[in-house]
């Protein structure tokens, strides 16, 4: 479903070219859970940003269902980000002036639509709040939520979009171990129950071991570290 074909990423600084990684090719099947690990500064997030359509590769292409996302016009790329992929950030990145409810509704609001669609959206969001045990915090602003609650809202936001592929950039990086485990369990249960594809960045091997495939970026190269049959 996702084909990453020979992508590389370099940047130029003061006349010198630095290559972050090169020759990365992966095929990701629908419903697969993938972890990308590597030392700090190895290019994990850069790779994720390219695959998620947030950044362009220096060379190579990323195909979703045979469509190269980096050759899309801006309008189509926006729709792609709204409907096909969802991102969970380490720093939660909730919109500060929206309530928890409005944050979860965000991708659906951007999509807009008729009154009937809006009614349907509300029921989707309501059920997500129930699933994440956050119904009592629907009308709270992010600043009043704990880290775990904010990340659960962020997860619900991604799920509300109905996307097929979820990218998680160190989703438990800002949480303590107990909260982080709860958040991860919630994420994984949603991914498994709804057959989503998950691409997760982490430096925690315990988390990585829960994925189907572990890739490691090291010295500018991506290799499989382990694979669950």
């Amino acid at each position: 479903m996702i084909e990453i074909k020979n992508i590389s990423k370099s940047y130029r600084e003061k006349g010198e070219v630095t290559t972050i990684f090169g020759g990365v090719s992966i095929d990701i099947k629908s419903g697969q859970k993938i972890a990308i690990i590597g030392p700090s500064g190895s290019g994990k997030s850069t790779l994720l940003s390219i695959v998620a359509g947030l950044d362009k590769p220096t060379t190579g292409s990323v195909l979703y269902d045979n469509v190269d996302i980096h050759n899309m016009p801006e309008k189509d790329l926006s729709r792609f980000r709204n409907e096909k992929v969802g991102i969970i950030f380490q720093a939660f990145e909730l919109v500060q002036f929206f309530t928890a409810y409005e944050n979860v509704m965000l991708p659906l609001s951007i999509r807009s639509g008729s009154q009937g669609v809006r009614n349907n959206n509300r029921s989707i969001v309501d059920s997500l709040f129930l699933s994440t045990n956050l119904s009592h915090r629907k009308n709270s602003l992010p600043a009043t939520l704990s880290g775990g609650e904010q990340q659960r809202v962020a997860i619900a936001r991604v799920l509300a979009s109905g996307c097929d592929v979820i990218f998680a950039d160190e989703p438990t990086g800002n949480l303590d171990s107990i909260t982080g485990k709860k958040v991860l369990d919630l994420l994984l249960s949603f991914v498994d129950n709804n057959r989503k594809t998950l691409i997760l960045i982490t430096h925690d091997m315990n988390i990585a071991k829960q994925m189907d495939v572990i890739y490691e970026i090291k010295d500018g190269q991506l290799k499989i570290a382990s694979e669950v049959a």
Partner: peptide, 14 residues
């Protein structure tokens, strides 16, 4: 600025 990035990440056009 970070809200704007989030909006864009979720598909809102520039």
């Amino acid at each position: 600025r970070s809200d704007v990035l989030v909006f864009r990440a979720f598909g809102l056009k520039s």
